[in-house]
Structure formats: structure tokens, C-alpha cells
Write a protein that binds this DNA or RNA. Structure first.
Length: 430
DNA sequence: TTAGGGTTAG
């Protein structure tokens, strides 16, 4: 609704100049408005201003704030709000408690999310949905199915969001049979008409599991016209299963539907590079430059002692000497245990040793390594990346968790990964 | 006792 933070602030000033004083409700409207708009930082800034004006937050303000913390994976800030809520009696508010679950899930602390969940006496449908979605985005499909069954046992009637969460869980864990069962059940048992999101989950589920023909047939038979999310799901699956013919069909559609989304071009670049089709790689690059689509800025960040350290692709970091020293050492240890750099993830026509160097410079590797150097040895490392993790970094993170005996949470552009003891919660299904 | 609130995606 607000869109422009300055305009919203202008309203506050207008209220003031008319002799009235903005209260907690008007400030909360700004905090929640910008939060719902996805402007998390702006929302946090409104909150700071509200505090400077001496207005104390209430449960409504807190639930909006927690939404921001989740959106930005600001675990420490979220924990502060948690303790503030306990001290001030807001923890009994089911909106606050549900927002806490969401915040903990999105900040890489599922254990804390579950503890909050267990303590809520009056769990609502949204409370269950939050936790189920939380587990789903980590690829914990079996837990998702179990939670869903518990929810039914508690006489809570699922809605369309529940089924999006459950199907996402199945999709992120490769649970094809369960996915079909719940997809059929939503309309036959609960009268919920599947939306494009549910169909998208199913295409993704089938495609990622390797059933590309079935995914294609499903798309042809669905009553809705496939949109960019559906074609995107198919293209993603084509990349995993290296099906270049189908990928070309999907990408052609996507270039029409969303010509300025660089992710689709990058996927095709990746795929052509995998097959050493460098001429086609150049064609895609030319296409991007003709249309004027830019490869968006890639960055990763890691939070250490409440300070956020950002690693931008192509930019130097003040401590990079120390980081690369540690990373080279780490990679040699990883190689002893079987790690092989996946040079197919580099879509430049250079020799393999150069490709290995490019792989080392990926922002998620730098952020994880920085976390390993700078944080205490028992603290899990929490990294956020604004685009999808690369397959080599995914493998590397598993080995890093093993070599360093550390838990690593990584939230990427589309989902979450929890690396521990050489494995990932997604079971490599992503 | 009213405003402002928590859950959906490749």
C-alpha cells in the first residue's frame, strides 16, 4: 500500500503538524505496511523512528517486526524480540507466537521454531501452516507429512496454503507418491480447487524426481494455462536431468513470458556449458545483451556477532587474503575426503584449473569460510544468498560441514539447506 | 475496546 516510504513518513508529519500525535497504531501501520510490501529494511527503519519518538510497541507491532526478521533472516534481532515478548507478556498472543515460528524457520533455527510451536495452547491454522512450510523449505518431507497428519488429528481443517506447504515438502524431498496422494486429496476430501501454485509444485515434484515426461503430460492436461512458474519448474528440472531438448522448449516460453528475468538465461548458459556448447553459450549472452537483460548482482551474507558481512560477486573483500588462505587449505582437506570441484558449474570457456579458481570465488563459499574463521566453533554458520546455490557450492558445503564439524544453514533464492556431518537436509533433491 | 498483526512460489 505504501510503496514510497517517504510518502508514508510524510503522512506522519502531516498528522503531527495538525496538532495530533501519531500513536502506536499509526506507527504500526507504517511498520506493517512496508513489511507486507517486502520492504523489510524500511519497516525496521520505521520501527527505529517509532522508538526514538518514545512509542512503545505492542503485540501487533511485534508480529510485523518479526516478519521483517524472518524476511531478512536476522536471527539475533528476532531473538531479541522473542525475549522482549516474553518479558512483556506478548508471547501469549498467537499472532506473535506464530510470527516467531516463521522467523525461526526462516533464520535457520528449526529447533527453536518447534519449541515455540509446542508451547502454544491455541494453535491456529496459520500456526500449523507456518511450521509445515518451515519444515518444507528445508526439504524435511517426512516431517512435513507427519505434521500434516498431526494437524488433521487435532481437528484443524487444512486450506489451500496448507496444501502448498505439504506439496512443497514433498517436492523438496522427492516424495512423489505422497505428493500425488495429497494433490488428489485436496479436491476430493476438502473441496479445495488446486491453484497454479499447486500445479507448479506438482510439475516441480515430477520433474525434479526425473519424471520429465510425466511432468510434461501433467502440464498438458492441467485446466490452467501454464505460467512462468510452471515453465520455470520444468526448466529447473531439465537442468538437473540435463535434458537440453525440453529445456530449449521451456526456455523459449520463458524468454517470452518474462524476458527480463536473468535467471532463465543463466540456467540455459549453465546447461549449454555442461555440454561444452560454447557457440550456444555465446548466443544466449548475445540475446541477453540485445534485450538489455542484465545478470543481477549476486551476493551472499553471513551474520557474525550481529554484524552482517556481505560478499558481492566481482568485488573485493577487505579480508579476502585471509579467506582465500583458509579456503585453499580447506579445499585440500576436502579433496582428501573425496571432494571433486564440479567445473561444469563454470560457464566460461577456460581450462579446468582456471575453472577451479572461479569456483573458489563463489560468494557462498567466501561467506561460509568467513563464518568459519570469525565465529565461535560451536555456533552454526548462517549464510543467505540472493540467488540459487550452485551445485559445486552445495557439494563443497557438505564437505565443509564434515571437515570442520560445523552446522551450516544456507538460505538461497528459493529454499533452505541445512548441512551437517557431510549431508544436506535436502538429500540433494533441489 | 477500535484502528495496526502471523502462513503460499521456480
Amino acid at each position: 500500500m505504501w510503496g514510497q516510504g517517504d510518502e508514508a513518513l510524510g503522512l506522519i508529519h502531516q498528522v503531527k503538524s495538525s496538532g495530533m500525535s501519531p500513536n502506536v497504531v499509526s506507527w504500526t501501520a507504517l511498520v506493517s505496511g512496508s513489511s507486507q510490501n517486502g520492504s523489510y529494511r524500511e519497516s525496521l527503519e520505521f520501527f527505529s523512528q517509532m522508538q526514538r519518538e518514545g512509542i512503545r510497541p505492542n503485540s501487533v507491532t511485534l508480529s510485523s517486526l518479526l516478519r521483517n526478521c524472518g524476511g531478512l533472516s536476522l536471527l539475533q534481532k528476532g531473538k531479541e524480540i522473542h525475549s522482549f515478548s516474553i518479558k512483556n507478556g506478548f508471547i501469549e498472543d498467537v499472532f506473535v507466537a506464530t510470527a516467531l515460528i516463521d522467523m525461526y524457520c526462516k533464520s535457520g533455527n528449526l529447533k527453536a521454531a518447534y519449541e515455540v510451536f509446542e508451547r502454544i495452547e491455541n494453535k491456529t491454522l496459520a500456526t500449523w501452516n507456518c511450521l509445515i512450510m518451515g519444515f518444507a523449505i528445508y526439504g524435511l518431507g517426512k516431517e512435513v507429512v507427519s505434521l500434516f497428519e498431526q494437524m488433521l488429528g487435532a481437528d484443524i481443517i487444512p486450506d489451500a496454503i496448507t496444501f502448498t506447504a505439504v506439496l512443497s515438502g514433498c517436492k523438496n524431498s522427492g516424495l512423489v507418491n505422497e505428493g500425488w496422494k495429497y494433490f488428489d486429496s485436496m479436491s476430493s476430501d476438502y473441496g479445495i480447487i488446486p491453484t497454479i501454485e499447486h500445479y507448479s509444485c506438482m510439475v516441480d515434484l515430477l520433474g525434479r524426481a526425473g519424471y520429465l515426461d510425466e511432468a510434461w503430460d501433467f502440464m498438458q492436461s492441467m485446466p490452467l494455462k501454464p505460467d512462468a512458474t510452471i515453465w520455470g519448474a520444468l526448466l529447473g528440472s531439465c537442468r538437473i536431468h540435463k535434458n537440453i531438448q525440453l529445456a530449449e522448449i521451456a526456455s523459449k516460453k520463458l524468454f517470452e513470458l518474462e524476458p527480463y528475468n536473468s535467471a532463465n538465461y543463466v540456467l540455459m548458459l549453465n546447461l549449454y556449458a555442461m555440454f561444452d556448447r560454447w557457440g550456444d553459450v555465446e548466443c544466449i549472452k548475445d540475446l541477453m545483451s540485445d534485450i538489455g537483460v542484465k545478470n543481477g548482482q549476486v551476493w551472499s551474507w553471513v551474520e557474525i556477532d550481529q554484524i552482517i558481512h556481505v560478499f558481492c560477486a566481482g568485488e573485493n573483500h577487505p579480508d579476502e587474503g585471509e579467506i582465500y588462505y583458509e579456503l585453499y587449505h580447506l579445499v585440500s582437506e576436502m579433496k582428501k575426503l573425496g571432494y571433486k570441484p564440479d567445473v561444469k558449474c563454470v560457464y566460461q570457456n577456460i581450462d579446468d584449473s582456471e575453472k577451479e579458481k572461479v569456483l573458489l570465488s563463489h560468494t557462498e563459499k567466501l561467506a561460509i569460510t568467513y563464518g568459519l574463521i570469525k565465529s565461535r566453533s560451536i555456533t552454526p554458520i548462517r549464510v543467505i544468498k540472493n540467488s540459487r546455490i550452485c551445485p559445486d557450492c552445495h557439494t563443497a558445503a557438505k564437505y565443509m560441514s564434515l571437515v570442520k564439524n560445523r552446522e551450516i544453514f544456507l538460505r538461497d533464492g528459493s529454499r533452505f539447506h541445512h548441512f551437517s556431518e557431510g549431508k544436506c537436509s535436502c538429500n540433494d533433491c533441489w
